[in-house]
Amino acid sequence: MEALKYIGAIISLFGSIFLFLGALGLIRMPDVYNRIQAGTKASTLGTILTLLGIGLIMPSWGGKLFILIMFVIITNPVSSHVLSRAAHHIGVNMYKNTVTDLLEKDENNTNSKPEKQ
């Protein structure tokens, strides 16, 4: 029982380290798409691991923590998708070393892109 608690604490620690790395990626990455990538991935797994560790320390809290984890897994990618779509639509500048942008090309081909903000 005691060992399970220590494992839970270690898992929580890893989760918070991932959260920290996600926030660090937010600072280090050069443009908004890369920031969204680092932010979403690391914060999702970080939160999941933290909640999992807490669930191991307090097993009777499992139900609510499970709901919370499912909620984070469903909503977090959707919000980052909507945000990156909006960013591309209003034409946020991309990193100077960006290799290719096929979406821009396709939208120019169909001429459906409205004026930039």
């Binding site: 280090r28 680092a38 991309m94 990193y95």
Partner: peptide, 15 residues
């Protein structure tokens, strides 16, 4: 990638 000092990224949008 974040911890690497040289930030090895090569981004782009593919289909």
């Amino acid at each position: 990638r974040v911890l690497n000092p040289s930030l090895p990224i090569n981004p782009g949008i593919v289909k």
